[in-house]
Nucleic acid binder design. Structure first.
Lengths: 122, 122
DNA sequence: TGTACTGTTATATTATTTGTATAACAATGC
DNA sequence: GCATTGTTATACAAATAATATAACAGTACA
């Protein structure tokens, strides 16, 4: 999978890494059991520090997207803890939907967007 | 309007302020033409620095939620630039929906959440 | 005219976060 | 034994966040 990092973004590198990998899982470019590149390997190919990749992997582990196998490194392994995700989802939706409402974006357009994006995931 | 700030949150104070005010506009607690408290007043009641409030107001002005009147201070005034909001909406939805997809949250549940939240806005 | 209030700007300081750098460790596979 | 895994420790530079003090130019009002 191609992981794209925007060095001009104001988003932290390790967060961009997390999000790219989560997007990769959602789009089935990564599947359960697949091993991620090692922290040193990925750091090298992207051209960033090992610890930045390690931080991303640590966050992904805490949020239940990967598990760590001493032999194979970081491996995609999904935990199905809905509650935490649902709370995060609500919190983020409240703000972004408030912005949409202020800018007069109709709810039907939001629903359309959701379907459009979700159809690319499995 | 009651503005709630969580000092234990990892979200920056000025961003919390922005979001609270945008939520206030979406829920009609603030209406077009209403004046926000002065930077010094709000800073005093919350117990934070004047410049932190000023930064929040500056961001809100740039994003088109308030305009500044020399006489009245920061006043709610909505710019209807949909495009920028729509791009931001898409970008944030892609990530949060990827997380939802990974955690097996069905799209119908997302739609339900959207309606539930949006119904509180006008 | 003087006083008090607006947002704005400038400068400085402290704390936290982010990313890098070097190094070592224990566990594993070959 | 050797190379590879994630992990941990420490140190450092840069950027961001929040505070502090101070001043400025408009505006409102008595």
């Amino acid at each position: 999978m191609i992981i794209e990092i925007d060095f001009n973004s104001d988003e932290a590198l390790y967060l961009q890494l997390c999000n790219q990998i989560i997007l990769g899982i959602a789009t089935s470019q990564f599947r359960e059991g697949d091993a991620l590149p090692s922290v040193r390997q990925l750091a090298d190919t992207i051209g960033i520090n090992m610890h930045t990749v390690n931080k991303a992997y640590t966050v992904l582990k805490q949020e239940g997207y990967v598990k760590v196998d001493r032999r194979r490194g970081a491996v995609i392994a999904l935990d199905m803890e809905r509650l935490q995700t649902l709370e995060e989802l609500k919190r983020e939706l409240r703000v972004i939907l408030a912005k949409s409402s202020c800018k007069n974006i109709p709810v039907s357009e939001i629903h359309g967007l959701i379907d459009e994006i979700y159809s690319e995931y499995t």
